[in-house]
């Protein structure tokens, strides 16, 4: 009788724990009317994922054997404790090779319609091929990765348990992608506001949001991810690259994928979720602060020199987009 009782207690305890992890309950206190006609939508609380794959993916995400010389893991550049980025202008791969474009955060990347700044990968699974094989990032090959993982005893059992054919390229990618899909940050203050809690934002922040909309920022930064669902030219109203100088091949953006002249300087509009925690900004990492980034956007996408007050208020609003991961603020 006693063992069964203990077992039930454990079950109750663990199930309670998982529900806290994956299903953060909505804020209590009445049923406030949600704002449905806003261009920005809240991040849903729940994900419907296989927790075994997520756990395996988490291990692989931290696994430096994915790189040729066992020094770099996914987490090296996408540090989960640093809001899924490394705060560098360019990240460093194996042999201290410097990258060519700013590494975006891995949080909420599942909500982006395509991956990479130039959108060359359609899915998270496809994206993984990039860094693993890029000589300046992890510099490995799939044969090498599979060989190393098969020689690491800790992986055999979990792979076998989930995938009948064990450690395969497809399965490694699947597990990592599933883990990445679990990296969502719901319950930002702004989401509470969207769900009807008017006290979640200060007057200044609400004013910042009003300006964010009326200055046209929501033309691109909209949807659940506040961006990440379309391409746009950097420098729609003024020539950003002429003013910045020092052109690099990465500056060509989507042109590098399609070869169409129209796509030169076109980039995926980045998500602004958790933007306060993911400096530096822009594909070239040239904006060190949010204020700088907002000013640059005003200058080149709106053709306007925004007043310090405007910038301040919009930045205040952007800071409300920081959400929670595993119940803790990012």
């Amino acid at each position: 009788m006693k063992p069964i009782l203990i077992l039930i207690l454990i079950l109750v305890a663990t199930s309670g724990k998982t529900s806290r992890l994956w299903a953060v309950p909505p804020p209590v206190g009445g049923q406030p009317a949600a704002k449905t006609h806003e261009p920005i939508k809240p991040i849903p609380f729940q994900t419907n994922l296989d927790s075994r794959k997520v756990a395996l993916g988490r291990m692989l995400f931290q696994e430096s054997k994915l790189s040729h010389d066992n020094t770099v893991s996914c987490a090296s550049c996408h540090d989960l404790s640093q809001a899924g980025t490394d705060h560098r202008v360019h990240s460093f791969g194996i042999h201290q090779t410097e990258g060519t474009i700013n590494a975006p955060t891995v949080f909420n990347s599942a909500g982006n319609f395509k991956q990479f700044w130039d959108g060359r990968a359609a899915t998270l699974e496809e994206q993984i091929d990039g860094p693993i094989q890029a000589p300046g990032e992890m510099g490995s090959t799939w044969d090498e990765v599979i060989g190393k993982l098969r020689a690491t005893p800790v992986y055999n059992a979990p792979f076998k348990a989930i995938y009948p054919n064990g450690i395969q390229r497809r399965n490694i990618k699947d597990a990592i992608a599933q883990f990445e899909r679990s990296l969502i940050t719901p319950n930002a203050r702004f989401d509470k506001f969207l769900r009807g809690d008017d006290t979640a934002l200060t007057t200044e922040e609400k004013e910042g949001y009003r300006k964010f909309k009326s200055y046209g920022c929501t033309s691109c930064h909209q949807g659940v991810n506040v961006g990440g669902n379309m391409f746009e030219t950097l420098g729609a109203m003024a020539d950003y690259f002429a003013d910045r100088g020092g052109p690099t091949p990465a500056d060509n953006g989507r042109f590098n994928v399609t070869g169409r002249e129209d796509d030169r300087y076109v980039f995926k509009v980045p998500s602004l979720r958790n933007v306060a925690r993911t400096a530096p900004y822009l594909h070239d990492g040239s904006a060190k602060t949010l204020e700088e980034a907002v000013t640059v956007m005003g200058r080149y996408q709106l053709g306007e020199r925004l007043s310090p007050q405007d910038v301040d208020q919009i930045v205040k609003f952007l800071k409300t987009l920081t959400g929670e991961y595993e119940g803790k603020p990012l």
């Binding site: 009326s214 200055y215 046209g216 033309s219 669902n229 379309m230 746009e232 030219t233 729609a236 996408q301």
Partner: peptide, 21 residues
């Protein structure tokens, strides 16, 4: 569709901002 989204965003940007300015 991608071209439409980009161009429409630029258009909306101006349409939204014009009355403000």
């Amino acid at each position: 569709l991608e071209r439409f989204k980009s161009q429409n965003a630029v258009l909306n940007n101006s349409l939204r901002y014009l009355p403000v300015s």
